[in-house]
Design a protein around this nucleic acid. Sequence first.
RNA 1: GGUCCCAUCGUCUAGGGGUAAGGAUAUCGGCCUCUCACGCCGAAGACACGGGUUCAAUUCCCGUUGGGACUACCA
Length: 469
Amino acid sequence: MAHEKVVVRFPPSPTGYLHIGGARTALFNWLFARQKGGKFILRIEDTDRQRSTDEAAKAILESMEWLGLDWDEGPYFQSRRYDIYEDFIERLISKGQAYHCHCLPNELEQKRKEAMARGLKPKYDGKCRDMGLGPAPGSVVRLKAPLSGITQFHDLIKGSIRFDNEELDDLVLKRSDGSPTYHLAVVADDINLGITHIIRGDDHVNNTPRQILIYKAIGESLPQYAHVPMILGPDRARLSKRHGAMSVLAYRDMGYLPHTLINSLVRLGWSYGDQEKFTIEELINKFSLKNVGKSAGIFNTDKMLDLNARYIRETSNNILAELLTPFLKKSGFHNLDREIVTAVAGTLKMRSKTIREMAEGASFYFQERITYEKKADKKFLKPEILPLLEDITERLQKLPVFTKDVLEKTFVDFLEKNEIKLKKVAQPLRVALTGKTVSPGIFEIMEVLGKDKALDRISNAVVHIRAGK
RNA sequence: GGUCCCAUCGUCUAGGGGUAAGGAUAUCGGCCUCUCACGCCGAAGACACGGGUUCAAUUCCCGUUGGGACUACCA
């Protein structure tokens, strides 16, 4: 007992993509398991055959993999474990803890409405509870729940929580089509898989006493519960599609690093003093349920953007090139030279908050023919800088090597001779080279572009200016 | 409606009977500068309200308000 091995699980239902709330729950479970040297099990809860899809299941696995949350067992699919539930239900029935119920859905719906109308609790009235009925077409199996008393448990995050059993009713365990309901399947599986700790969203707090009742009915000891506060949208409402991108994969596609998402998610609800950035190793060491807060939080990407920018800056150019390549391809740039992409990433990493942004900022490097932004053209490509452009062109042409340092020296001479500041030519040159007013430093750009391309672009600008636009 | 949970800057949070209530991000101002960023400096910004308990409450207790969740043959 004292040295019981920790076994936790993450049980998404494949009715949609993995959203950030689910991802955080998975992360907390994963961290807990890794820290305790325990087991992390992935279980797909697909007992709702109508709403579950294979694509969703695949997207969830892909999300988990992208985040680096590897599981030790599974994925188990509940739809393939019906014999376990069947057996479980039979045991409950034979123990007299569950019974067949012949009430019709519409009849129950009717009763519920009436009860609501009279201001009563809309719970099952227990009509079939003591009738000793057998199975029949269209019948269900219900738990014979206690009519009085209290059910309480100690939540690792929220402390002691108690419920009056009168609030609960005889919940359905087996549907009329023979499939298990959520509560039954969860408990049967958690027992079957030896789950010791259930870390889940606090939207399940109210489900907990129902599930505890099933544990008690079957005579099994309870796991430990830890209910993590929910993540809400900016309007403080439960997360949903209308809050925009909530899917883990969407963040990948927006150019976030998986580590950024992990770090942001863990800090939403959990804290470790004033520390904001954590490596995975640190998280595994430092995570604790004790430091998980009790109140719901709003998912705000401002802070995550900043974190992403920091992580990008810390990532090697090589890895950035690897991450950047798919985004460049999506922009239509193919036959990319790895060395160039690496250099490009190096010039952009200080000013990119996402990899997507980096790709956008990189496009001028790869375009055959750049186009000038209208305002940039008008403001900087003016006839009066023609002499300067011609002068610098001549100097650049003579250079045997085209590196940042050499370029810088060349410009120092050029500026001195002309008695001007870099400021005067930097912007026109930037526009000539990139078409834009915002870019990495002009020397780095020229080095990456190479002598031919750089000179080519400058001479194009000269022609463009002469043509009077 | 009933039940359960929650409440510190806009947001994420630290803290905790006596604090200048700390950090991060976002915002604004300044410096740096070839643009944009980065970096640095600075500003503004919070204990929901009302009662207790106490020499002293933002902190403990109760209530109010507000928010969230659950209340299915969904998970």
